[in-house]
Write a protein that binds this DNA or RNA. Structure first.
Lengths: 230, 230
DNA sequence: GACTGGTATTTGGTATGCCAACTTTCTGAA
DNA sequence: TTCAGAAAGTTGGCATACCAAATACCAGTC
């Protein structure tokens, strides 16, 4: 039996179920379509979807069930499955919940994260903190999202990570759009720097407050300028 | 056509789908079974469930899909559907996320709730704030849950309400169990009173902090004394 | 008796068919 | 022309059938 110890096999590819594949494909399609450009509601046809995906209706329906649970689609019996367009006030509510969770993550990060992990925050986005951010807004939008995700991962709380990942899918587009309104990008960077400093100083109360105010500021901005959503 | 204005009919019994009924029945059964008494894992048989519920496997599976998304069950291909037993650290993480959301709700309530709504907090639980709470722990456990739900509803943020309602299902049992350990009940009441006072004073910073510390205190308690969960 | 290999059974994953309700289109009477 | 009202077509909800993988069971060997 000693010989078999020489054998090291990886635990198989674990080929995903069709349901999981359908879920990924549909979520990808929905989040990329930018619903808010469309005037009228977008309806999804179960039969067409299953035809396009090359699978039967069953896994498609189960994938849609998950997406309904996540707030992306809405079932209407014998009428259709519709992609949900969030209202302005719903977006604001999501940003507020996000702020609550991210600020708690920042608090937890102050005691849980190592110095090396905190250093990543600064190292990953060095170029944008010098010079005018308005010159590379697209890059900064991505970096902005990553920054907030990084804070959440530093909190090392799986529940917060999971809950926010759902919210991010809904809010991602709005976050980037808001960045382009007014002089928010430059201001955002200043706040990010202050957040990093608070984390490095291990000041949990300050880090939490700064993250919360940063988030609630975005909420107020959407509340004021987000009428195009409705 | 004026006459029909006199007519107020409820929008039909809106006979729920079998899927929704199966979901309710299964969720009820799962949350009531007190899973932490069981030693080994609990497996759910799709065919038996559909037989007992009197419907086919399809709506049962779709209900289970939702419950999987909510973290109550786990699908294992060709092995079975298992009721998930949360580990201690997962419970702690859920309480931390809960604290983040509830403290934000308290903050929002300070500016959004009317005086009348705030008064409900005190009025609904008058009897327990005098005398020794250890005399009626069962009643107090229920009142305790309602207190926290009330704060969340006062925040008037639907996203926070939805996210916490999921968490509550998982944590409800633990919350009540912790109440019975040590002298937590009496202490809990004092903290509740302080929270009410902060809300009535419209002190958002204080209300948020008290709610957060109240929640994180529970998290630490579970962290310390919750080894029976694993 | 312990263990190996094969076979039967169980079980979740998927495909498919039917049905009732909803929409749309057609039709005919006012 | 207008507009009920019926007929035809769509569409999601549900039930059922089948499959492949995993397990349980069993016979045979050492």
């Amino acid at each position: 039996m000693v010989k078999s110890d020489m054998f090291h096999v990886k635990p198989i590819a674990a080929t995903s179920s069709l349901r999981a594949l359908a879920y990924e494909a549909l979520k990808e399609a929905i989040t990329n379509m930018n619903i808010y450009d469309q005037k009228e509601e977008v309806r999804l046809d179960e039969r067409k979807l299953s035809l396009n995906l090359g699978v039967s209706r069953t896994p498609v329906r189960e994938a849609l069930t998950v997406l309904e649970q996540e707030g992306f689609v809405r079932f209407e019996a014998r009428r259709g499955v519709f992609v949900i367009k969030k209202t302005k006030s719903e977006i604001v509510a999501m940003i507020q919940a996000w702020s609550a969770l991210e600020s708690m993550a920042a608090r937890l990060a102050c005691t849980r994260a190592t110095d090396e992990q905190l250093a990543c925050l600064r190292e990953h986005f060095p170029e944008f903190y010098e010079g005018r951010p308005s010159d590379h807004l697209d890059e900064y939008s991505d970096a902005n999202i990553r920054f907030h995700q990084k804070i959440i991962s530093l909190g090392q709380c799986d529940v917060i990570r999971d809950l926010t990942s759902n919210l991010l899918m809904h809010v991602r587009g709005i976050r980037n759009a808001a960045m382009r309104q007014g002089d928010r990008a430059a201001n955002s960077i200043k706040e990010h720097v202050a957040i990093i400093q608070a984390l490095e100083a291990r000041d949990a109360d300050l880090a939490e407050r700064l993250v919360r105010e940063h988030g609630l500021g975005l909420a107020r901005h959407v509340e004021t300028y987000g009428d195009y959503l409705d």
